[in-house]
Amino acid sequence: MDANLARLTRLVPPPAAGRNKDWEEVRRAVGADLPADYKEFIRTYAGSYWDDYLYVLEPGCPNRHYDLLALNAHAMEDLEGLWEYEERPPRLEEPGSRLIPWAVTDNGETAYWLARPGVPADRWTVMVNEDGDRWEHADTTCTGFLFAVLTGEIVCDLFSPHYFPLPEHRCRRLDGAGPAGMTPLSPDTA
């Protein structure tokens, strides 16, 4: 198991089973292989809602609002529209660089993988945007980022510090449409 995912599972125990995916089909849809730690995360937690704030997207999520494939299909188009009015982040100036969304928040922030040419998926880092010209970069994987923001090792100024992370972590699996379509993952879920 990935070291960051192992730390995350000790912090917030996963359910008995996550969900399996056809990762080759996902690769074709996204146009890139996704990081191994993310694939392990989905097999462990599935698409999930963390501390009543952050949604980790899942390819083919039963809750269509958090389907990684659907959000990815429009992500670059939406960002290109944004960059008509806002400055493009310097990290994306390298030709062939792209952003792939892997998490969103209740307030509209999005966490992306920064996929750069020649960089293997397992070495992609994280960029967060608040739907404007403010960006933050974290030199870590998606599971490393999630663990670090939950424990305070990384403070993402774009997230709402009054609401996230919670002192007692909560995690729910995304199963159906809306909050009623969530399944508790951890025993401390209210």
Rank of each mutant, 00 (worst) to 15 (best):
E153F: 04
T143Q: 14
F145S: 05
E136W: 03
G144V: 09
D133N: 10
R134I: 10
D131Y: 06
M127P: 00
E153K: 15
T125S: 14
F145I: 04
V149K: 02
E136L: 11
E136F: 04
L150E: 12
E136V: 14
T151E: 07
E130P: 00
M127K: 00
D139K: 13
H137T: 14
V126N: 08
T143C: 15
T125F: 00
F145Q: 09
M127E: 05
L146C: 11
V149C: 01
G144S: 07
A148G: 06
E130N: 13
T125P: 04
T125W: 02
T141M: 10
D139F: 04
D131R: 12
V128W: 02
T151M: 07
V155T: 14
G144K: 13
F147T: 08
D139M: 09
R123F: 06
H137P: 01
D133L: 05
H137C: 02
G144H: 12
F147R: 03
T140R: 08
H137L: 12
V128T: 02
R123I: 06
G152S: 05
W135M: 08
T151Y: 13
A148F: 02
E153R: 15
D133T: 09
V155D: 06
A138F: 15
T141E: 10
A138D: 08
E153C: 08
W124F: 13
R134F: 12
C142A: 08
V128N: 00
M127A: 03
I154W: 01
F147I: 05
D133A: 06
G152Q: 12
M127D: 03
R123K: 13
F145P: 10
G144F: 07
R134A: 07
I154P: 01
G132V: 08
L146D: 09
E153W: 11
G152E: 14
V126I: 15
D133Q: 11
W135T: 09
G132R: 04
L150D: 04
F145C: 12
F145E: 07
M127I: 06
W124N: 05
A148P: 00
D133V: 01
G152L: 08
L150P: 02
T140S: 09
A138R: 02
T143D: 13
D139N: 12
D139G: 02
E136R: 09
D139H: 12
C142H: 08
N129R: 06
E153Q: 13
E153P: 03
V128D: 00
V126D: 02
R134S: 11
R134V: 06
H137W: 06
A148Q: 11
W135S: 01
T141A: 13
D133P: 09
A138T: 05
V128L: 03
E153D: 14
D133R: 13
R134Q: 10
T140P: 04
